[in-house]
Design a protein around this nucleic acid. Sequence first.
DNA 1: TTATCGATGGTA
DNA 2: ACCATCGATAAA
Length: 197
Amino acid sequence: MSERKILSHEFYKHNTLKVAKELLGKYLVRKVGRKKIIGQIIETEAYCGPKDLACHGSRGRTPRTEALFGQAGQWYVYFIYGMYYCLNVVTEKKDYPSAALIRAVKPIYGINGSEKTDGPGKLCRTFKIDKKLNNSSACSSFSSPLRRGRLGGGLLWIEDWGEKIKPSQIKKTPRIGVDYAKEYKNKPWRFILKFRI
DNA sequence: TTATCGATGGTA
DNA sequence: ACCATCGATAAA
């Protein structure tokens, strides 16, 4: 049995396409109160900097996208379509707007059968992710502010459980919902983990 | 099965 | 007006 390691800043600061692919098979861990929710990441998308017209950062720095311009390894959570949140983890250099969108996980622990995890909005609903997590760190399980005189547990992070994913297990497709992105709309920057080849 | 459409509200 | 979505409904 392999050790479970929290992914570090080092993991996230590389090329966004690489990070988005390497996130497949890792484990998204959410702590809410004393309960844990865990899902294995099976679908991601890469948003690759200021030139990528699908990336929120391509329209410049705004209050909403501030976290996207921050340090690798922090969460970028935004509100969309009036009722959903989307979860991204920031990649590459500070001030370079790039991130990996986590689109789907496979339920592993603490998830009711009726709760869906197969879409960015549904995943955030099930994992109780909203803007309160925006700009917080994904690199520690002890990153939250002091509460009642002691460290609160971390709230949301990603673990490597030592599984190796082969390139042949990764399906690539264009990203969802970015028809407006001109020459970037058909870039195969959506990555899906296949369990059957 | 695929296609279409309304809900809903922050953002620029 | 637009939107990195979802779920219901209709059509086929």
